[in-house]
Amino acid sequence: MSIKKLNLVLMAILIALPSMIFSQEKLTGLQIIQKVYDRPTGKDQNGELVMSLINSRGNQRVRKIKQFVKDFGNMEKKIMFFTSPADVNNTSFMNWSYNEKGKDDDQWIYLPALKKVKRISSDSKSDYFMGSDFTYDDLGDRHPASDKHKLLREEKFNGEDCYVIESIPNEEEYMYSRTVTWIVKDKWIGQKKEFYDEDGEHLKTLSVKKYEKIKDYWILLDSEMHNVQKDHTTKMELSNVKVDTGIPASKFTERMMKRGI
């Protein structure tokens, strides 16, 4: 390399370095949450979900679900088939969520006893999903614009460098007064999330126990939600995850809800 070229490279580094440092320092809470929201998870995904509900006495109830998700660009469609316990076997649930801010999800449930697909309101996002510690909203991708985000600090958590973000909902009546999330730098994956109730009291904690890179995507596999006020825990374990297998659009239809897996 000639001296002239070396000088040019050094000049470029000198020009770029402050902006690189500045841009890393400059990341706001909103930008970090946006990166989590935008983290690619593949065009489609399917897997088997086991949800274990554990009460304070250690008694456990288990729900098993086979789920399929597909990104359609402006919307995401998800279909879930319940396989256990026996009294919900063959029940299915379909959700269409939209990127458009403020547009409500569309939801349907198929009840085999009624042999009918029923449209249900997605308004009750604060309802708990199948008696678990997860609300419907906890399970969805909350739009970053729904909250005000603030970077509290950066710290190591579970051996990973994390951003700690506080999010306060714009909606006054929302079920949580604030949440605090530990986000792994560069992976843009949440490691832990604390939820505070309307009175500002610590309500529950979501801990991610396992995540893996499948194809080129970081996928959350095992997580646990612990309600500290009721000492009740829900474990979510996702297995047999397959990404970008080309699930056809026809999987997300009334036909499949009725037919089953």
Binding site: D104, K118, R119, I120, S121, D123
Partner: peptide, 9 residues
Amino acid sequence: FTSTVGPLV
């Protein structure tokens, strides 16, 4: 028919 209007079905 069935449709949702806000919280109503």
